[in-house]
Amino acid sequence: MDIFIQQLINGLIVGSIYALIALGYTMVYGIMQLINFAHGEIVMIGAMVTITCINLLLGLGVQLPGPLLLLAGLLMAIPVSMLLGFTIERVAYRPLRRAPRLAPLITAIGVSIVLQQLAMLIWGRNYRPFPAILPTVVHDFYGAAITDLQIAIFILAFLLMGGLFFLIERTKLGRAMRATSQNPDVAGLMGVNINTVISMTFVIGSALGAVAGVMVAANYDQAHAYMGFMIGLKAFTAAVLGGIGNLAGAVVGGILLGLIESLGSGYLGDLTGGFLGSHYKDIFAFVVLIAVLIFRPSGLMGERVAERA
């Protein structure tokens, strides 16, 4: 098996998931300069609700093909996550809209912890296996293996990103969102209801997060109440790498981070003479984060258009 191509494939798949989650961070940051650290938990809850829903259907003896069961789970998880994102903004962030920036940041961490603990109460402290409803079809790709599931994840991720870009760039809501992120006061003068725009931003980001959560759970065959922490930090890193607040940057950052992590961990054993194995893959995300913050804090695509007075 070709390790390079295999890690390239793995990196692209994981990277496209990071990108979906990073979009949620970057959209919220773009509009209200807030890092929504609870976003990782929304991803986790999307995964958990889907698993619960599929198990429920299986328990009821529903006879459906695997992909349809998965779809049913997703259709349950997406609204739950959207509602959760909407509620978090209303309850935890809106009262702090005019507060110093540190206050909502600390609140975000608080919300994240509350949701983790809540998930532990509901789903327990053990790993929840992803129900084995999807047939494992493996294709050979230039000596590397790729499954149907991975292909589906990749395609769906890019369809969703395309949909999001269409929404932001071509619709009235998207235009209002961009205007709000650039000058909320004047957007209000033009008749934009800022509260609605901010709610929509959370709702859309949470929907993408829920789908990403299901992708993670399906790809790794498991979910856990704490899974949102690490995946959230990595997606946040991806958003920073691409330039936080920049949508295209989140996609580029996500894919790049996936590739760096995957290729890095694939060769880490060889590079360190077996001292460090691939289970150290998590260090790559944070090495990247530190490097970006030191050498290019605005991220790869974070440069703003020159604005004349």
């Binding site: 961009r178 205007a179 650039q182 006061d185 004047v186 003068l189 703003r304 258009v305 604005e307």
Partner: peptide
Amino acid sequence: EGRGVFPRL
């Protein structure tokens, strides 16, 4: 005052 155009629209 200061026009307040949306610079990146």
